[in-house]
Every structure is written in C-alpha cells, then in structure tokens.
C-alpha cells in the first residue's frame, strides 16, 4: 500500500516550475527544445512579433522605432553640414553609433560605452560599409567644400536579445524615412542656402536585413534568440542579406562550430526573413507617403 498523496494544485505547480527555471535554466530549456518548441511558445524557426514605427521623432531628419518581442531600438538620424574629407572630396559621411544605456538592461552601466555597445556599433558600421546602403557620393553637396554628415544614433530602450537584428532594421527604416532639404550654393557669397520647402528622400540603394541565430548545445539552431536564450546558448550567428540574396555580413563571433550545410540552412531562413521584413517595410512606407 502506498500512502495517498493529494494532487498538487496548479499554482504550486507553476511556482515549482518557475523556481526550476531559475535554478536549472539550461536543463529547463533543453526539455522544451527536445519537443521543438520554446518556453515562450515559439517554434525553433519562428521570429518574435516585429513592430515598426517610422517618423517617431519629429525633431530628427529621419527616425524609426523597432520592437522585436521585448527588444526595442529607436534610431534617429540627424543631418548636418561638414567639409568633406581631404582624401575624398566628393563624399559625405555616415556616422553610426549604438548606445546601450543602463535603462535597457541591468547588465549595462553608466559611463563610457562598454564592450557590447562598441562591438554593436562596429557591426552596424560594417553593415553600412559592406552593403553600400547609402553611396557616400550622394551626400556630397559641393565637391571639396560641403557635404552632409548623417549621424545615425541607435538607442536601445529594452534589451531582450537579438540586438543586431533590431538595430539593422531600425537603421534601414530610419534611413528610408530621411528627408533632406535642397541645398544650393550661392555663387556670390559662397554660402549655402537651404530650401526647407523642397525636401527629397535619400537614395537608399540596398535593403540589408539581419537574421540572428543561437546555437544550443553545439547542435540545435534557434532563430531570433531572447536575452535568456542568448545567455544560455553556446554561440550566435548573424547573417545580413540584401534583396538580391547577396550576403553583406556573416558575423559569427566565436562559439560552437558549424558545418557548411548548417550555414546554408540558416541562409535559407535569412532569405525568407528578408522577404517578410521588406514587405513590412514597404507597407509602412507606403502608408506614410500616401497620406
């Protein structure tokens, strides 16, 4: 005869599961992944809900807010005048900067930008450079004398993993939102005259979209990792692709090894993600221009 144990009530059960998640997070995740799903209910290849809002900041020349699950990034672009660089007089500048303030996660401290922020900034700068989103020549107003500087400030408001995808998307959406006034150089005074009434959109030449993966236990690939998943994973991988399926960036900062075949699978997922995102972006931009 076994002693009778009453069934555990649901609240207690949930509480126990919750504490299990705290004590053994990796084991908890493995149980889910074995069943091809994740604790938040997503499948392995599923993205979180992505929301984009463009023109969010009225004082900026172009802006966008991107929310991917809880991860939120806002991008504001400010255009200013500057003298073009000496070695390339027919070019302007694009200066990206990613800020991860203490506001977005308890991981970050105040003070000078930490390693993560610097690495993300470098990644965004690489994407800009590699994909040639903006031709620097387009930003030149008068060769050798005046050019535009686009300060692209990306600020993370809520950090819950996959910052690279959100930042790349926010940057692209904001660049598509930038309107620059017409500038003419007065030949008599040699001063720049700004015509604020006549504004035109930037020529955005490429549409790079980033897709991030996390590797679990050296074998399992999951898409769009949350902060917790990133922390528990044994490696991450980010693929940036443009609309022709050309790769601008294959960023794998160490971690578990992958074979060529696995990489190819990731690339197919990146292709379909690109379609999704560009459809979303087109829709948003149309909705604004039609008004």
């Amino acid at each position: 005869m076994r002693p009778h144990v009453p069934p555990v009530p649901a609240d207690t059960l949930l509480a126990v599961v919750k504490s299990w998640r705290t004590v053994e997070p990796l084991e908890y995740y493995r149980r889910f992944l074995k069943e091809n799903c994740r604790p938040d209910g997503r499948e392995l290849g599923e993205f979180r809900t992505t929301t984009v809002n463009i023109g969010s900041i009225s004082t900026a020349d172009g802006s966008a807010l991107v929310k991917q699950g809880n991860t939120t990034v806002i991008c504001g672009i400010k255009a200013e005048f500057a003298a073009p660089p000496l070695d390339a007089p027919d070019r302007g500048y694009v200066v990206p900067n990613v800020d991860l303030p203490p506001l977005c996660s308890s991981r970050f401290r105040t003070g000078p930008p930490g390693e993560e922020a610097q690495v993300t900034s470098q990644f965004i700068a690489d994407v800009l450079e590699n994909s040639q989103i903006i031709k620097k020549e387009d930003l030149c107003i008068s060769p050798g004398k005046l050019a535009w500087v686009l300060y692209c400030d990306l600020i993370c408001l809520d950090y819950d993993g996959n910052i690279l995808d959100a930042c790349t998307f926010a940057l692209l959406a904001a660049l598509k939102n930038v309107q620059l006034p017409e500038v003419t150089i007065n030949e008599e005074t040699a001063l720049a005259e700004v015509n604020l009434k006549k504004k035109s959109y930037l020529n955005v030449r490429a549409n790079p979209v980033a897709t991030s993966f996390a590797v679990f236990d050296d074998t399992l690939l999951i898409v769009d990792p949350t902060g917790e998943e990133e922390h528990l994973s044994t490696g991450t991988l980010t693929i940036v692709m443009d609309e022709e399926g050309k790769l601008c960036c294959l960023h794998k900062p160490g971690g578990s090894g992958l074979t060529g075949a696995k990489l190819q699978d990731c690339m197919s997922r990146a292709v379909s993600r690109h379609k999704e995102v560009s459809r979303l972006l087109d829709e948003v931009i149309q909705s604004v221009t039609h008004k």
């Binding site: 590699n130 994909s131 040639q132 900062p253």
Partner: peptide, 10 residues
C-alpha cells in the same frame, strides 16, 4: 567546423 567568421564586402 566554423568557429568564427567575419566578412567585409558583398
């Protein structure tokens, strides 16, 4: 296996 990769260009 690929441990790390970083690329430049298209």
């Amino acid at each position: 296996k690929l441990l790390m990769s970083t690329t430049k260009g298209l």
